[in-house]
């Protein structure tokens, strides 16, 4: 069943420019991990903001968990179904103690203190931050802060988490920490993840990639299908992983080498198999 569904979604900002979203129709399955790629101005962040009713459609419809986001009385339930993690971890942490910040959403839900305690402990464990429960957030590293922010959203027990470039402000080790936490909560807890990103290596970890251009879906498929289309990705001003790039340079037509190699091992196997005649 589709947890997120948009039909002919159109959105135009007030500044009178072109449509930021221009007839976008997307289905996202429950429990899936979808990455949304696109160069700046492709509409990917605008799309994310529609999944949480931060922006409402100028035209078309958005359903989250079967609820129409344009209906004011669904607002609370839409936001409870689809949690949102933003780019800057500093600007989404509310409290001066980590565990109180994670508790914030539960406190707003009006849950009893014992239930809040349990959820806070579970969520901090899920992102690997249990030992920092009593720390002050401003003394944590970027990756740690972002994991606290994820735990804070997770504590609402949303069915879906939408992340708008959560690693854009982090260093490589922080990015790895956050991506590890995201994969874990998708695989182990079955939370649907929509990851807006411009890092190809992060997108490659998803089950499905949507590439957006000028407010429309330009490419849609598994990471292997999408990332192996070197020319098409180039037209969309996106790069492909270096492994694909290498195979493409060696054999532009793809006659002997398959371009669908996202890991270094797969790439090496292809080359060894085809040029040295050794079976992988």
């Amino acid at each position: 069943m589709a947890i997120i569904e948009t039909r002919d979604l159109v959105f135009r900002y007030d500044d009178g420019g072109d449509n930021a979203l221009d007839g976008l129709t997307v289905h996202i399955e429950e429990g899936s991990f979808t990455a949304v790629l696109g160069h700046n101005g492709s509409g990917k962040s605008t799309f994310a903001k529609h999944l949480n009713a931060i922006l409402l459609p100028s035209g078309g419809k958005v359903w989250v968990g079967g609820l129409d986001t344009a209906d004011e009385k669904n607002l609370f339930d839409v936001r409870k179904t689809a949690g949102m993690v933003f780019q800057n971890p500093d600007n989404q942490i509310v409290a001066t103690v980590v565990e109180e910040d994670v508790a914030f959403a539960c406190e707003n839900l009006g849950l009893p203190p014992e239930e809040i305690r349990k959820r806070v402990d579970d969520c901090l464990a899920a992102v690997g931050m249990s030992e920092y429960a009593r720390h002050a957030p401003h003394l944590l590293s970027g990756g740690q802060k972002q994991r606290v922010a994820i735990a804070g959203v997770l504590a609402m027990q949303p069915r879906c988490i939408v992340m708008d470039e959560p690693t854009a402000m982090l260093d490589p080790s922080g990015r790895a920490e956050v991506m590890g936490a995201v994969r874990r909560l998708n695989r182990e807890m079955g939370v649907t993840v929509v990851l807006i990103t411009h890092h190809m290596d992060e997108a490659a970890q998803a089950d499905r990639i949507l590439v957006m251009q000028r407010g429309k879906v330009a490419l849609d498929g598994t990471p292997k299908e999408v990332l192996s289309q070197v020319e098409r990705m180039g037209e969309l001003s996106l790069s492909v992983p270096q492994t694909v790039e290498l195979l493409h340079t060696l054999d532009p037509q793809g006659q002997t080498l398959s371009h669908e190699a996202l890991s270094v091992e797969e790439c090496a196997d292809q080359i060894i198999h085809n040029y040295l005649g050794v079976r992988p």
Binding site: N52, I54, F76, R79, K80, G83, M84, F86, N88, D90, N91, Q92, V94, E99, E100, A103, F104, A105, C106, E107, N108, L109, G110, L111, P112, P113, I116, R117, V120, G152, V153, M156
Partner: peptide, 24 residues
């Protein structure tokens, strides 16, 4: 920052003090 924080708080269901409970 204030604007981003307000959005993030709304996304985490903040709706004023009514019906709010506390961890501690």
């Amino acid at each position: 920052r204030a604007e981003e924080l307000a959005t993030a708080m709304e996304c985490r269901l903040y709706h004023g003090g009514e019906g709010r409970t506390r961890l501690h």
